[in-house]
Design a protein around this nucleic acid. Sequence first.
DNA 1: GTCTATATGACGATAGAC
DNA 2: GTCTATCGTCATATAGAC
Lengths: 209, 209
Amino acid sequence: MSGRQAVSPRSRRQARLDLILEAAEGVFADAGFEGASMSSIAAAAGLPKANLHYYFGTKEALYRAVLEGILTLWLSATDPIRPEADPAEALSAYVRAKMRWSRQRPQASRVFANEVLHGALYLQSYLAGPLRALVREKSAVIEGWIAEGRMRPVSPPHLFFAIWAMTQTYADFDPQIRAVLDCPPLDEQAQAQGGATVLQLVLGGCGLA
Amino acid sequence: MSGRQAVSPRSRRQARLDLILEAAEGVFADAGFEGASMSSIAAAAGLPKANLHYYFGTKEALYRAVLEGILTLWLSATDPIRPEADPAEALSAYVRAKMRWSRQRPQASRVFANEVLHGALYLQSYLAGPLRALVREKSAVIEGWIAEGRMRPVSPPHLFFAIWAMTQTYADFDPQIRAVLDCPPLDEQAQAQGGATVLQLVLGGCGLA
DNA sequence: GTCTATATGACGATAGAC
DNA sequence: GTCTATCGTCATATAGAC
């Protein structure tokens, strides 16, 4: 271990990796996998193109690395849905968490959407594995609430599909929403109104309003 | 007008155009604009590659033609939403029409989704024009229903965003839904259950359940 | 009108100097 | 470890025979 460098090699390498991953997420979100070029990602990261190949080998490997980072986020928002929780509060917290994700990580949402839209080639194992397991677990919790008469009967998996769709649309279909509302930068008020509407549909549909 | 051909040149030409457009819609849906190649579209149509350029000139022109065909469908489903209609019946009919579109024209839905997801470059004028006008018109109808106390207050544009998202997700995110439900071909029952759930959320959220 | 053969350019990837 | 220069491939598009 030579003391020549102020920053350890590992953290320097990690900083480069993160820089590339962040740039790649943005370009993949804007252009999709095929539309994104290694040149444009390199330009976005402010690095020479060959540097990307040094760190990640291939474009596909870089793409998979970007997806990996996104997936961990996707699984972490269902925590509030637990048997002993209040259904209305738990579902509200989940919807709010999903809306926050759309607002704060719209690029991640769009990379994910693009991947699923085109067949989920790189996500099949994740969708049929951890995600399916998570939905089954949380569906059982909701079925329990229904059996106890604490909310209206509803198909839990389809409730999840609806919540995902309604919340992610604010990231994925942002151009459409902005055009219809005529507000080039999607303002705070529109976001809040969208969140309120989603909540109203979810709670109303579950008989929790 | 020579009688040499059994079929008139115009209809023969139209048949070729339709054949190419249908093949192109499928390939664009699977691969996106950048991912689709003229060769693959030609192969799907069973024609030589140069034939496509003869009829449409460029790949971009072909893509725009595909989008045009899809847009006309998009605007035609809001008919049931009229001032004198029953809110519950009108919204139900609209949701069912949108679910039918996802089931019967999933490729069109995915081409549209991909276009909006990547910035709606070719759709800006449509989104800010006819679509915005349509939403304003139908929003006024819904505002009227609310003012008359016939349904719960809700932001009409966001209600539309929610309905679009929930119904189109069955076309656009089909791989995710199939993986979670563990049913390779999305069966009749799952579709029906999805439609019922969407209806329950919309009607429940609007106080019409 | 239709198709074969080809021009032109952009892309991912790498070799090799530093 | 890092970057410049370059290779091979495949894309769109077209020229020109039929």
